[in-house]
Design a protein around this nucleic acid. Sequence first.
DNA 1: TGGGATTTGTTCGTATGTATT
DNA 2: GAATACATACGAACAAATCCC
Lengths: 242, 242
Amino acid sequence: MVGRRNTVGNRAQFGSADRVGAICRALRQAIVERAVVPGDRLPEDALGERFGVSRTIARQALGQLASEGLVELRRNRIAVVATPSWEEARDTFDIRIGLERLVVARLAGSIDAVQEAALQAHVDSEEAAQRGGEPGSIRLATEFHLLLAQMTLSPVLERYVGELAYRCALILSLYSRPHSAECAVAEHRALIAALTAGDVARATSLMDRHLDAVAERARIVAAPPQPRDLLRVLAPYAEVAL
Amino acid sequence: MVGRRNTVGNRAQFGSADRVGAICRALRQAIVERAVVPGDRLPEDALGERFGVSRTIARQALGQLASEGLVELRRNRIAVVATPSWEEARDTFDIRIGLERLVVARLAGSIDAVQEAALQAHVDSEEAAQRGGEPGSIRLATEFHLLLAQMTLSPVLERYVGELAYRCALILSLYSRPHSAECAVAEHRALIAALTAGDVARATSLMDRHLDAVAERARIVAAPPQPRDLLRVLAPYAEVAL
DNA sequence: TGGGATTTGTTCGTATGTATT
DNA sequence: GAATACATACGAACAAATCCC
């Protein structure tokens, strides 16, 4: 899925054939399917062994994922799946909405029959996955947005929307309850309809509401979900302790 | 300038204290000031020697810059300063305009006195630099947009606008003539005025026109400036040769 | 065309810093 | 609180690819 090509953002990056890219894709998928969750440790050794590569390669993959905001790399410490703060989460969603508006603006009215078929087929598989299980369901819902971004033929937009979409999936796995598994199917279909009809205003509004709904799931379920920052938690007691 | 903090996009990345980041900043500046131009070679050894670091560190810096689209990394080949194609150049400018609209939308009407002073001071130094020389002038013009992005307090927006702004500077050094040195001062001042007045529509329109003007310099001066792709150039003769 | 010099790709050992008993 | 186990940071060295004469 999401076939690659080599433009600005793909990051064939270092050399390493494509082992680095393969590991990145695998980890992205593991994150979006919640096989690993924020805070999980990703030691270079373990990764290397699991994927049959040396630490060097694993390290490069971690570096790349860190640059995408999916992994946190603290000096001399084991890498962990990122745990975005509440503010970062909101920021990510906000900017994502802004960028997806650009996608919609570019796509409305310029979707041909073949593209529409591809989109419908993708939503079909979302629907199937939603019946079946859940892990794949979230991934497919995310990739629907990637598919739209690819159709803009703007490598820059594709890269940024991709980064943000994955990061949003990560955020949902942090701030929303088990299965908010994207009842997005209907919303995706409506969006496709508006896009093929060339109704920019309607498509934009649908996309806005769709993403707001997704964000809302996180926002409502878990308010500021326990940052557990002792310094902050204990601040009110500081005066008393004096 | 452009003081750092550690949020999603900064890429403290691997460990390496901040030597990697320092090299990246230096190279970005060299690129924006046209000390190095598209196509220039950046061998790992030479970089390492120049900055007093080992190849490992230089390599990480190159990887990071590649991810920002400023450097091209081809397998087993010396890294070079990126040479974006004409299509990539247009794409970069287009998306940049979209993102800077988001910046303007967030900033209009929420600029306080201190921020306005900072912006004016920055344009002052642009003005001074424009009189003096040119290299610094382009850098300052670019950093004006970074300053605006920072004021949105959106790390994501700051990162993406930064990437695109530097990439646009690179593009101008590729596709425009020697000194298009941004007569941007007046336009920047007008933008500040509209922002502090809280006139979103006017600020947006000014930003659009400003960036269009910048892009136009490249577009007019050098049409498709000789990609010199032999395969393509010779295509019409293929039939004849049979 | 060939071969030597250059440059990258990768591994691995050592040093240093972090977690844990 | 110290010592041990463990993980990362960095660089030296080797192999393979590329460049250039």
